[in-house]
Write a protein that binds this DNA or RNA. Sequence first.
RNA 1: CGGGGCGUGGCGCAGCCUGGUAGCGCGCCUGCUUUGGGAGCAGGAGGUCCCCGGUUCGAAUCCGGGCGCCCCGACCA
Length: 562
Amino acid sequence: MTRLSEFLLPTEREAPADAEALSHKLMVRAGLVRQVGAGLWTWLPAGWRTHQRAVQIIREEMDGAGAQEMLMPLMQPAELWQRTGRYGIDELLKLRDRREAELVLAMTHEEVVTTHATQLIRSYRDLPKVLYQFQVKERDEPRPRAGVLRTREFVMKDAYSFDRDAESLNATYEQLGAAYDRIFDRCGIEWYRAKADVGSMGGHGSDEYMAPCGAGENDVVVTPGYVANIEVASADPQPVVLPAALTEPQSVSTPGLTTVEDVSAALELPAGALLKAYPVVLSAGDEFVLVMVRGDHRISEVKLRIALGGFRAAEPAEIERRLGPPGFIGPVGAQMRIVLDRGVAVDAGGYLVGANRPDTHLHGVVPGRDFNFELADVREVMLGDTIGGTAIRIEAAIEVGNIFKLGTRYSEPMGATYLDQNGVSQLIWMGSYGIGPARIAAAAVEQFADQQGISWPRAIAPFDVHLVTLGKPQSEERELSERLYRELEAAGMRVLYDDRDAGPGEKFADAELLGVPLRATVGRRTLASGEVELQIRRGQQGSSVAVADAAASIAAAWQSVP
RNA sequence: CGGGGCGUGGCGCAGCCUGGUAGCGCGCCUGCUUUGGGAGCAGGAGGUCCCCGGUUCGAAUCCGGGCGCCCCGACCA
């Protein structure tokens, strides 16, 4: 029974002044959520209905994939996190209880679930297993933002898989990936499965489920058949026309010209005819490495880390000592390991590079002849790049879920092993799989909203039909509306009945703001024509159904709504 | 962590520079009218002006400190 006269739906005419993201503005205006503090949000009844509908879809598909739901505590002993080496994470919220015991509020549950696995999984016969929960996650975010999109506390569906070996993990991973595909399809949002970075904690593979939308914090690179987070994406660069190679490098005077822009402008060369030098120091062994990319390209820190392992940018003093004045450094004569990005065409002509001398560059330089190098893909892709001849698109997106092959990252420090068929102790191979229902809701708002407000996919809408009555209390229209309300509920519809004593404009505006997929209107016209007016929120197409079997017609119409 | 901005009834804002009875719109309450696109008239309720300290006869306003919130960037296991 949901009568708007009794339901808490505090709609607002104006968005909060500080709201920027569309979903932030609309979710507050539509009365779905309210802010408590930075990155801390209350879900009001209508918003929570949507959240829980997403949760239910996830639950059904996880169960369908053989996963088992459980619940683990949010508050955990710090000791578990010290054991896996994650206690130092800045985003991890630490606290002490009255006895000064060190605790954390968990950001994920690998430590706890692996502790249980250690105790409860003993034999190869106990594997594989997938466990999951819907539980609050806490993150001490440096900067919460965009309403419900990046918060300090949020509900996450987190699942953990346990397998005998890498091969079995791969199978589980794909099985859960298929469940994820179904979940996001069923939720009615647009999504991509994007190749992703495994992060600095290592791992054996990861995909991110990305919902393209204006408020997206991530960029995904998209071509038919290829989607990747821009952090790890690879593509073919646009070719550049290079000056001819010289028989040997020649000095060019470039006084004070330390940037690619300055040099290319002064020498009338395309930026792509320059090679940019990026000196780094590896975390392992303090080795000095010179990374070279085309002048019009950018280093991708993530891809470089994947190629080299951990590193830091070299300090100016180190650069001066090892190479030459910053701004004029280059690979020719450099006594060190040189990594050349794959985007640099090696036999296409002569490049311009820093000469390792003040105010000087070198012309006509040929990689391989003038310096030795190893190739690696370390640049960030950019618009204009192609994959298989097709131009890439770069789209902003929010991460609504991820799947991750952990391998033995947690089973090893936690000692999670099993006995195989030969009685030999083996490490359990794990995976982790997250989904943020709040982000699904926000992504849906972002993707389908129009000038009037939200337009929910029917699968996660707070209600199926928004019944608007225009009659005054005690009127004949009211009587008809009440009857239709009962009939719709009897037909299994989730009905929001706007029985408030308010004007039509206000009721219609609120209905459009809230974005329930169908709106049925009963008013004077209904009495005159014997027809109930029906409007599909997405596209706002109107139609009429006969009063006599209105409930059945509306239930049928709902089936064909997006 | 760097840069910028903002804290005044539920929401959106003005007032602050130049100190002197705290205002506007929306919302809310009561009554009457109105009822197919945020309606009208009349009456009314509601504010520690973020907090602490200072200057002053007097502080929303000036000064100092703190807290909170937002945006851009960095970060985001």
